[in-house]
Simulated scan of single mutants.
Amino acid sequence: MSVKDAQRTRMATAPGFIAALDQSGGSTPKALAQYGVEPADYSGEVEMYAAVHAMRSRIILADDFTSDKVLGAILFERTMDSDINGKPTAQLLWEDRGVVPFLKIDKGLADEANGVQLLKPMPELDALLAKANTKGIFGTKERSLVLEANAQGIADVVAQQFDVARQVSAAGLVPIVEPEVHIESATKADAEAMLEAEIMKHLNDLPEGVDVILKLTIPTQAGLYDAAADHPRVLRVVALSGGYSTEVACDLLSQNHKMIASFSRALAEGLSVKMSESEFNTALGQNITKIYNASVA
Rank of each mutant, 00 (worst) to 15 (best):
L203C: 13
I218S: 00
D251V: 09
K30P: 00
A193Q: 12
M259E: 02
L216F: 04
G136P: 02
V146H: 01
H257N: 13
V100A: 05
A6W: 03
L224A: 10
A283F: 10
A62R: 08
G98C: 05
T187G: 07
S264V: 00
Y42S: 10
A90M: 09
M200I: 14
T89A: 14
V177W: 02
S169N: 14
P88M: 06
E208D: 15
D68F: 09
A127E: 15
E95W: 04
S262A: 13
L240Q: 07
P88F: 10
Q7W: 13
I213Y: 07
V238Q: 08
M194T: 05
P101T: 13
E47N: 05
A191E: 10
S82D: 15
A90D: 10
T13F: 11
P232E: 12
L147A: 05
S24G: 05
A151K: 11
N287D: 06
L125P: 02
I291A: 06
E142W: 07
E196I: 09
E45A: 14
E198N: 12
A50E: 10
L125N: 07
L240C: 09
E38H: 13
K69G: 02
A227W: 02
L75D: 05
A266M: 00
L93A: 09
A6C: 02
Q161P: 02
E196T: 10
R8K: 15
Q7P: 08
G44S: 08
T217W: 01
V174G: 01
K135R: 14
N287I: 08
G98K: 05
N133T: 05
F263E: 00
G26H: 03
M259A: 09
A159M: 13
